[in-house]
């Protein structure tokens, strides 16, 4: 069980947190205008990085605030946590190879 640094409350036990998956997946600006495929990618497809991963967590049994984190999915170690209103740039994934599409 990890000790997770809530950017608002400080270090707290893992059981207080809720996992929110990949960070920085924006809701499409105009959903009606995206293709079925683009929409499917928004709804169902998330990166599944082995290694450093930018993801979302919520301190659901504490302050109930969401925050972003960079965590290594092989060691589970948190490298960084950031409030959503942190003006510092938020870490995102390194650029990926262009996705091909399902056929």
């Amino acid at each position: 069980m990890q000790l997770i640094e809530c950017p608002w409350c400080g270090p707290r036990e893992e059981v207080e947190f809720h996992y929110g998956g990949q960070a920085h997946v924006p809701y499409p600006d105009a959903p009606a205008e995206v293709s079925d495929e683009e929409w499917a990618h928004y709804v169902f497809f998330r990166d599944n990085t082995k290694g450093r991963f930018a993801e979302r967590w919520c301190h659901s049994a504490g302050c109930r605030r969401w925050f972003n984190a960079v965590r290594d999915t092989t060691t589970y170690r948190f490298e960084r946590v950031q409030r959503l209103d942190d003006p510092e740039p938020h870490a995102t994934e390194p650029a990926r190879a262009r996705r091909s599409t399902a056929s």
Partner: peptide, 13 residues
């Protein structure tokens, strides 16, 4: 409640 807060905080802050 989780659903509403998630959208309000992460998508439409």
């Amino acid at each position: 409640l989780d659903w509403m807060e998630e959208w309000a905080q992460t998508e439409w802050p």
